[in-house]
Nucleic acid binder design. Structure first.
Lengths: 185, 185, 185, 185
DNA sequence: AATGAATGAGGCTTCATTCAT
DNA sequence: TATGAATGAAGCCTCATTCAT
C-alpha cells in the first residue's frame, strides 16, 4: 500500500495527490486508509524513511570497504542506480519534495541525510583529486553537484524492467561521467 | 508580478502555493490579483510560455547557425545556462511541474516544446556520432537524457549573482560532459 | 461495562467520547463493543434509564410515606445525595446532556422524568408554604430551581469515598438550604 | 457573530455544534466563517475570554471596595447574576465545557480563572466566619461549592427579559442562601 | 486598481458501525 | 466473544474565485 501511495505521489506530486486517489489505487475508500496510517504526511514520511534507510545500508557498506576514490565512486553510482531500480517512486518523491519538506521538524531527517550524502561524495571526490585520479582543474563542489544530479535525476525517466538493467545504465553513466562523451583525440 | 509568482511557485511548488501567498509577496490582497490575471493557472501558463519563447529564440538562433555538432552542443549548453540565469524560477517550475501539466490541453505547448527539444539535441548528438566527434559506444538516447538533465537540474541549486557566471558554469559542465572527470592516462 | 462507558461519558462528554475510548477502557476493540450493545446511543440510554429507575424507586418510597413537607424535603435531598454517590457518572451525564437529548423520541423519558420531578418538588414546597414551614415571601418556582440545582450540581465535584459521606453532605446542604449560611441574630 | 456562535454552543454543546450550524444561524456558508475566525476553537476561546474579562472587571471592582464579608458576598452574587444576564450563553458554555477544556494549553486561562475565583469566594467566606457573620458549623469548602454552584447553574434556566430582573433574582437567591428557606421559629 | 466579504467545491480526517473470520 | 479491516457519512478547514463598493 505504501508502494501504491509512492507511485501516485511520484506521478502527480505530493500536494496534487489526494488521499482519495491513493485509496482508489489501493481499491479502498478514502477513510479506510486511516486504519493503516495516521495521515497522508505519515505515509510520505514512511516512504522516504524506508528508502533512505536502505540507501544508507548500501552506501555505508561501500564506504566501509576502504576502496580507492575511483572504485568508491563507481560503487556509489552503481548502488544509486540499484536504489532507483528498487525505489524509483521514492527517489522521484525525494527529488521533487525534499526542498520544501526539510522546513518541517518531522522531515528533519532529510536534511541530515543530505548532509551525510554531501560528505560522502565530496570526500570521495577530494580524495580522488588528491590522489591524482580526478581532474584538478574543476571546481569540486560543482563536480559534486554534477555527479549527484546526473545520477538521481535518472529516476525521473527510469522505468524498471526497461531495456537496460540498472547495472548497465550505471556502467554507461560512469563511462560518460568519468571519460566524457567526446571522442578522445 | 509574474516574477513574484514564479519565485513563489519555484520555492514552494505550484500546488502548495496559494494565491494569497503570491498576493502577500506582491503587497496586495488575494482578490486583487484577479484584476491582473484570469486565474492562478494562467499565471503559470504565462510564466512558462515566456520562458519557453525566449529559450527557443536562443536555441533557434544556434540551430540556424549551421555549426558542427560539437560547437552546436556547446552553444546549446551555454544558452541553457544563460536561460537558467535569466529565468531560474521558470526553469525550476518547468522541471517540477511539466510532468503532470502536459496532460491538460492548456499546457499542450509543453509537450510540443519537449518534442522539439528532443529533436534538437538528439539530432545534434547523432550528427556528432556520425561525424566521429562523439563516442559511438554509448546509447544515444541515454546520452541525450544525461546531457539534458545534467544541464537543467542545475536550476535547482543555481543562484544568480553567485560566484560563477553562467558562462563559467557552462564551460565547466561542458568540460565534464565532453571530457569526463577522470584524469586521462 | 456500562459503568465504564458512563465514567467516560461523564468525564469527556457524550459527543466527545468515541466508541474507541470506551473500548480502550474496557480492554477490547471498538468493533467488539457491538456484540454487547446496539449502539453508542443505546449505551447512553441504558445508563440514564438505570439511573432514573433507581432514583424513582427511592423517590417514590419517600413520597408514598406521607411525611410532612419538611421531612419529605429532607428525605428527598438525602436520597438524591445517595444516588449521586451510587451513580455519580450517570448524574453528571444527566445534567450535561439532558437538554439536547430530550428533543429525540428515544429520550422522551427524560422529559417525562423531569416533569415528574418538578411535580414532586413543587408540591412538597407548596405544601410547606401552605403549612407555614417554608417561607411565603419567596417565588416558589425560583425556590424549586434553587433546591434542585443546588443538590444535583454536587455531582460535578462529588467523588465517592471522599471525606464526607453522602448523608453528611446531605445534612450540611439541608442545613444551608433550610437555615441559610448567615448567623441568626 | 460571536453571539450567534455562543448561543448555538450553549444550546447544543460545543462538540455537538457543527460549524455549519453556526454559519446557518449567521446566514453564511460554513467556509465563510473562516474569513472572520481561525477555527471553531478560536471562537470558543474568544467567547470565554470576553466573558471572563468582563466578569473579572466586575469582581475586581467589588473586591477592591473593601466591604465587609456579607456585603462582599452580596455584591459578588449580584454581579454574577448581572453577568448571567449579559452573557448567558457564555456562562452556560463555561459551565458545561470548562472541565475538559482546561486540559488544553490554549484554555489554561480557564484554570487560572477558576483558581482566582476560588480564592475570592473562599476568603470572603472565611472572613465572614472569622467575623462571626457566617456560620461556624459548616465546612467552608462545602459552603463555597454550594454558593458557587447555586449561582452559576442559574444560567441553565435563566432567560433574559423574563419576569425577574437579574437584581431581583440575586435578591431572592441571597435571601435563600443567607437565611434559608425554612420559616424561622 | 484595490478591498473586504462571501462562495462553493473539495481536501484531510474522524468515527460509529458492519461483517467475515 | 473478539478481531481486523473496511465503510460511508459527516466534520473542520482551505482555497481559487467572484463581486459590490
Amino acid at each position: 500500500m505504501l508502494d501504491t501511495a509512492a507511485e501516485v505521489f511520484a506521478e502527480q506530486g505530493y500536494n496534487a495527490t489526494t488521499v482519495r486517489k491513493i485509496a482508489d489505487h489501493a481499491g479502498l475508500l478514502a477513510g479506510s486508509l486511516y486504519y493503516h496510517f495516521d495521515s497522508k504526511e505519515s505515509m510520505l514520511e514512511e516512504i522516504l524513511r524506508t528508502f533512505l534507510d536502505e540507501l544508507w545500508g548500501g552506501y555505508d557498506t561501500v564506504l566501509a570497504a576502504g576502496l580507492g576514490p575511483r572504485p568508491t565512486l563507481e560503487a556509489l553510482v552503481t548502488e544509486s542506480f540499484r536504489e532507483i531500480d528498487r525505489h524509483r517512486a521514492a527517489v522521484a518523491i525525494f527529488q521533487k519534495e525534499s526542498r520544501h519538506l526539510v522546513a518541517q521538524d518531522r522531515f528533519e531527517f532529510l536534511a541530515a541525510s543530505q548532509r551525510k550524502f554531501e560528505t560522502a561524495w565530496l570526500s570521495t571526490l577530494e580524495r580522488g583529486v588528491a590522489d591524482g585520479v580526478f581532474r584538478t582543474d574543476l571546481d569540486v563542489r560543482l563536480t559534486y553537484r554534477f555527479v549527484r544530479d546526473t545520477v538521481w535525476v535518472a529516476a525521473s525517466w527510469y522505468r524498471p524492467g526497461g531495456q537496460h538493467s540498472p547495472e548497465e545504465i550505471a556502467r554507461q553513466y560512469l563511462s560518460m561521467v568519468l571519460d566524457g562523451i567526446a571522442v578522445r583525440i
